[in-house]
Design a binder for these strands. Structure first.
Lengths: 325, 325
DNA sequence: TTGTACGCGTTATCAG
DNA sequence: CTGATAACGCGTACAA
């Protein structure tokens, strides 16, 4: 800026002003400054700016995995809003590990983000402690809790599991099973499903857990195990994701089982492919981009020092009945 | 650091040394410094560090879209390696627009990243200029060119298109068509496919472009148009992605067309679901995580000032023959 | 409308 | 092994 200032015949401060608020500088100076910037290819140093102003315009986002469409879609919705407001995103993946999350939070905080986006409500005590003493807005997405660190935006996974069980009973399925990924929230939905189903019917629910990332392969293998190891003979299978549900449907067709006649299938997430499968997939819709956007709006309110009515936003879910169940 | 120093009975400089290289400090001082850090919950300020050292340990990554599995997988592979080496990732999405990319490059450069990861080889002249004068390592991923800005890691999209045409001819398909997304690289593959197929057989190739994001819906609608508007009556359909191919297969089944007997389908990308579809999908494999990792290795070599043998890395592709074609 | 002086919290350099 | 001192490049008073 000093160099630009010399070229334009003004001081460094004037250049700084010109860039941050052109209205505070006379049109003629502005023109000369622009010209000097053009000539030199000057790019302001946001690092120095952040140090001086104590504002980084940086938001830290920590997600389990960016190749997971659920989290990718949420953070995409979040990022779009934040970027429009002049913030950029420092993104890292935990690989679903709270320990790794702790390390990431520490390194992210060292960059002095203006706010932080976390996935889920389960963090190590040390993570909570760091976040609390960092004294910046924090939003936890994709789940709800009575004791958020600061803000939270999500829906109740237990209620979603219960709603699926009630749907199963209403539709008259008297034999059900679950296929779930091995992540904590999927397991919470599964547990609520089984508990509610047992309450309503008195029956136990056989369940299979797929230990790796949700995939078609996982769904196919899980159905195989349900049949071979649990002697499952048809009814409804409630899956923890649309991807697993799709895998189950593929394996079912391969085995000559008709969906939904021999085997009904429910997914979770309502990914864009769900309605285009044949038969179309009955699933639970969660508006992922909206979760991200609401999280962004909540943070922005905090960053503008506005009053936040409620720390927690429940965006709910909705069962979408299609052909597969 | 000054506070920590006081608590530990040393100067601020010593604290800085202790943190950056413990071996330069006596074990006893180190212990007291650790204790003081523990007590206060001190988190070093990387912004100030970056300003002083002129090293941000930040890598800028600019991708078309993070919900696109192709780019998500590449940047994931890339990030993992970079993070292990102490770098963090500032990630932004262009939405496939070179103009938006230009703006993003400008704002990213203001944060003084140590290197930058770009997707593809087509950038605005202004983007190239900024990057060149920033004088930091740049890697362009997912494509090849003779005139990279600095480094590039990818494969030849034209060759991939040609290889698919040659496969079609070898397998004896005498009626073919294409279904492609509306992105530049997909169109380049399509053009190469059609040209090569025409060279070998003298026949024109009907083609349909799906203007939005590749999806099952897109594949289904494209097959409909191919049949209704182009009078396509069977043969091989070469798709620009596995997702579109899957959509084509679903629509085919719905119309009572058997795959591959009535209609053969080829995808592109070899996503994890491809081998689990029924029939399994014949496609073109590109090792996306490897592209990201090689890009990371190339950048790291530059950052360590090592000699780089060749600026461009061709990681190639491979046709994976399965049941659908 | 513009300029001066200072501070943001580190690292680098040199001296002890 | 440790400390003093000067950058790093910008924002924020405050003054003119």
């Amino acid at each position: 800026m000093t160099t630009i200032g010399k070229l334009a015949g003004v001081s460094q401060v004037t250049v700084s002003r010109a860039l941050s608020d052109p209205s505070k500088v006379s049109p003629e100076t502005m023109a000369r400054i622009r010209e000097a910037i053009e000539m030199t290819g000057f790019v302001p140093n946001a690092v120095a700016g952040a140090l001086a102003s104590q504002k980084s315009h940086l938001i830290s986002a920590i997600v389990p995995s960016i190749t997971n469409v659920v989290h990718a879609a949420m953070v995409q919705g979040f990022s779009q809003i934040m970027r429009e407001q002049g913030y950029e995103i420092l993104l890292s993946e935990t690989g679903f590990s709270a320990q790794d999350e702790e390390k990431l939070v520490a390194t992210h905080l060292s960059r002095r983000p203006d706010a932080i986006y976390l996935t889920g409500i389960h963090h190590t005590p040390q993570t909570r402690k760091m976040l609390l003493s960092a004294d910046i807005p924090v939003v936890e997405v994709w789940d709800l809790t009575d004791t958020p660190i600061d803000l939270c935006v999500g829906f109740s996974h237990s209620e979603a599991g219960r709603a699926m069980a009630e749907f199963a009973v209403q539709e008259g399925y008297d034999r059900v099973a679950t296929v779930s990924a091995n992540d904590e929230r999927a397991q919470r939905r599964r547990a609520a499903f089984s508990k509610r189903y047992a309450e309503l019917t008195g029956q136990d629910v056989p369940s299979v857990t797929w230990a790796a990332t949700a995939s078609l392969a996982g769904g196919r293998d899980s159905l195989r195990r349900l049949i071979d190891e649990h002697g499952f003979e048809g009814g409804l299978i409630a899956c923890s994701s649309d991807m697993l549900a799709h895998g189950v449907m593929i394996e079912a067709r391969k085995r000559g089982l008709k969906v939904p006649e021999d085997l009904a299938v429910m997914g979770f997430g309502d990914q864009d492919f769900a309605e285009h499968l044949v038969p179309s997939l009955t699933t639970v819709r969660v508006d992922r981009p909206a979760l991200g956007r609401v999280a962004a709006d909540a943070l922005l309110a905090r960053l503008r020092d506005e009053e936040v009515a409620a720390p927690c936003n429940d965006l709910g879910f909705r069962i979408v009945r299609r052909e597969s169940a």
